[in-house]
């Protein structure tokens, strides 16, 4: 039953892609790549529970679906609750002899709106109950599906349709929710942040998340050309820059206590200036156009540096 995770390209070729082509995700969206990499890490029978979001809306237009594995759609706020139910249901069905497999991997996927804001209560409940579910959030920084509204994952300075930038405001003024650390504070066995650009790191972490007993959480950054107003071809480059600038550092947390920085982040000698990440994106355009927001830009850089230093201390690096 248990298949190996495909970390080498040679092994990946043996694995089937779990999302077929011809779905309606925007050109250049990184979420299908994230799902593809997720598929490389699977080890046996798997069920995906998905909250409403871009990925759900665009891949499953009734009566069709692009998913090749069992998949269930639930509302924005209860993906984790339904995932808990699926775990329990399979357990009971196996006990009654109605289902052959003893263990089914259950993955819950949510966008950043469905995880950071709306579904947070049910996520927290699932973590507290300790159901064996891997929750993955693909974080594209706003409610891109409903028209680019601001969410808890929106970066400071980001312009959205509910945090306009102009003479009065520099876009969103508040900081981003540190979701991985909030989840780690539940003392669950495994939390990790990933980027689709670093594929080996991604697959290894996802496999680790599947293998642990109890809940695990994966935070993936997913560049969105439509909402970020960037070139479609630059998605993977932005995913890489997010790691290099320290906006989305890669690390793992075991049992809520032991922080471990992952290779791609560990190798960073000095953070790339945040401007490199912002310039290819139209949503940060105002920070460069209007001289009055220069101070705010420096403020964002300071926040990111602070977070980075704090994280380094937690991970015991240098």
């Amino acid at each position: 039953m248990t298949e190996e995770a495909a970390v080498r390209i040679k092994d990946m070729l043996e694995k089937d892609e779990i999302l077929s082509s011809g779905h309606r995700m925007c050109a250049g969206c990184a979420a299908p790549t994230i799902v593809k990499l997720m598929g490389m890490a699977l080890r046996g029978p798997t069920v995906v529970c998905e909250a409403t979001g871009c990925l759900e809306v665009a891949t499953t237009i009734y009566p069709y679906t692009a998913w090749k594995i069992p998949w269930i759609h639930v509302a924005f706020e209860n993906a984790s609750a339904v995932a808990s139910g699926v775990v329990e249901a399979y357990k009971v069905m196996h006990q009654k002899g109605r289902f052959e497999h003893e263990h089914v991997d259950v993955i819950a996927i949510g966008g950043d709106g469905g995880t950071f804001d709306i579904g947070f209560g049910s996520l927290s409940g699932m973590l507290e109950r300790g159901h064996d579910v891997v929750y993955m959030v693909y974080d594209n920084g706003a409610y891109q599906n409903t028209g680019i509204q601001r969410s808890g994952a929106t970066l400071p300075g980001q312009e959205t349709t509910t945090s306009w930038a102009g003479k009065v405001s520099p876009g969103k003024e508040q900081r981003k929710k540190p979701i991985a650390e909030i989840v780690a504070a539940h003392k669950i066995p495994y939390v990790a942040t990933v980027s689709p650009y670093h594929r080996r790191d991604f697959i290894q972490k996802f496999r680790k998340a599947l293998e642990v007993e109890g809940p695990a959480f994966i935070h993936a950054i997913s560049p969105c050309p439509r909402g970020w107003r960037s070139e479609t071809g630059k998605s993977m480059e932005l995913a890489k820059l997010a790691v290099e600038t320290g906006i989305h550092p890669l690390y793992e947390v075991f049992d809520g206590e032991e922080y471990k920085m992952s290779g791609p982040s560990k190798r960073i000698k000095e953070l790339t200036p945040i401007e490199d990440y912002m310039k290819p994106q139209g949503q940060f355009r105002h920070l460069f156009k209007d001289p009055q927001w220069e101070g705010f830009r420096e403020q964002i850089q300071t926040w990111i540096k602070e977070d980075w230093e704090l994280l380094k201390k937690k991970c015991g690096v240098e």
């Binding site: 011809g22 237009i61 069709y64 679906t65």
Partner: peptide, 23 residues
């Protein structure tokens, strides 16, 4: 769409939403 079985679940297929190459 008209000839698909009437079920409450969806069947996976390539090009589920038309030929996206036209985009």
């Amino acid at each position: 769409r008209a000839n698909m079985p009437k079920t409450s679940y969806s069947k996976p297929s390539v090009g589920a939403t038309g030929k996206t190459g036209s985009w």
